[in-house]
Design a protein around this nucleic acid. Structure first.
Lengths: 232, 232
DNA sequence: TTTTTGCATTTTGCATGCAAACATGACAGA
DNA sequence: TCTGTCATGTTTGCATGCAAAATGCAAAAA
């Protein structure tokens, strides 16, 4: 193994060979996030399988896994529907995420590598750029990335995975659409403080900043959800 | 609808009709907990399906769901095996459970109904009875029930579900087998204090008691795991 | 009119079949 | 003796078929 060869080997990605049910999950998840599959809409097996170009078997596996994630609801003998956005459920989810963020803040400050903090910083400035451009979609994306990276930076894989899964349920709520300019600016300032605390590895401060940030987010999310509930 | 008729209709339970994949999950979970399916052992589809008296299709669905729970590992194109008990993974899981227990303690004291606290109390004394009899298996069972009931008493369904799922991974470690008598007695005293704090609805104290209790449990679990890791 | 019943159609849940991937082991060549 | 190749049987991944359940609707009964 010459240095040249091992270098080239290292750069080779394994040939992708994903199971169909995983591909189906990714596609469905994306469709649900994008809102192309709306809450409550029925997921006809035959039709969807045909559209995705797969058979019903891997699609049914995808349904069941998405149900475990909370994105889909299974009605016995009556198929699957896109899970409803229930305010109580989402509120509970945010509360659990709060508990996890407390741990994330603590661990990230204690254990994150400088490199991963730098990565969060980079994302932070991308987010600020999006904010400066008033690009809501890009802001939201980078904002999500920051929180997920932070979860990963804590160095606890189970923590990151649990956080990610809960977050997926909240992410469906498009709470940013009617966010006031003031609230948006305030959120950015909160993020400045969060990055600062992380940079200084001040766990206690990061913890309380994240808690406060989440409280505001919870208010926005539930506000975006209540009228929908009332209308339904 | 006469009163007599609606009363008789109301008393009728729906006929139970569970999907086969769910039944399979329950059976496999039980087999994994009981240790009849040991970590790393291969799960042959054809064979297991035959034993369970079902076809491969629902069994494969069960595998994938158990994999999402962390009890089973899927090797692409090479089938499923019972997930290994990895000390790092279990340690991370316990750490996340700690974060959740903090929230559980707080919420349970604030929101639990008196009835659910009474139920925890009842389980507590059943556990003490098992301890008095030195009945390890019964003690373990009641101990598990207490923690799960406490999680439910918090009144947050997502919290309880997340906690339950993480707990399932830890529960596989049979850490009680070589628990010293002193440690066992100490654990019972900790539980006395936990029940007391819950009864008085002292959230802060419950939180710190649960944290301390979990720290000891973590030590026991990891101690039970390390030699196994070294031997392997 | 309103409710109930029966029937045709659709859809799900599960079993089974088939091709591709993998495991095993014998054998040839170094 | 060791390494690599190939043949063979096994196992998985997916597609498809079939029976049971659910749905929709029209006709009959209240």
């Amino acid at each position: 193994m010459t240095p040249a060869k091992s270098a080239s080997i290292a750069s080779i990605d394994p040939i992708e060979r994903r199971p169909l049910h995983e591909a189906a999950i990714d596609r469905l998840r994306e469709l649900i996030f994008q809102g192309e599959l709306t809450p409550g809409s029925r997921l006809n097996e035959r039709l969807l399988a045909q559209r995705l170009g797969i058979s019903r078997t891997p699609l049914r596996e995808a349904f069941k896994l998405l149900a475990a994630e909370g994105l889909v609801e299974l009605l016995p003998n009556r198929g699957a529907i896109v899970a409803q956005l229930d305010a109580v459920r989402i509120g509970e989810t945010l509360q659990v995420m709060g508990a996890l963020e407390a741990l994330i803040g603590e661990l990230a400050c204690r254990q994150a590598s400088d490199a991963s903090i730098d990565e969060v910083r980079a994302l932070h400035f991308e987010m600020r750029a999006a904010h400066a451009r008033r690009d809501l979609a890009a802001y939201f994306r980078h904002n999500q990335s920051i929180h997920l990276r932070l979860a990963e930076a804590a160095g606890n894989a189970i923590l990151a995975q649990t956080y990610r899964q809960l977050n997926a349920n909240v992410r469906r709520v498009r709470y940013m659409a009617n966010l006031s300019a003031e609230r948006w600016d305030a959120a950015v300032r909160e993020h400045d403080a969060i990055l600062d605390a992380l940079s200084m590895r001040d766990g206690e401060r990061l913890k309380s900043l994240l808690s406060e940030h989440l409280a505001h987010k919870t208010a926005s999310v539930l506000a975006a959800l209540e009228p929908a509930q009332a209308a339904a």
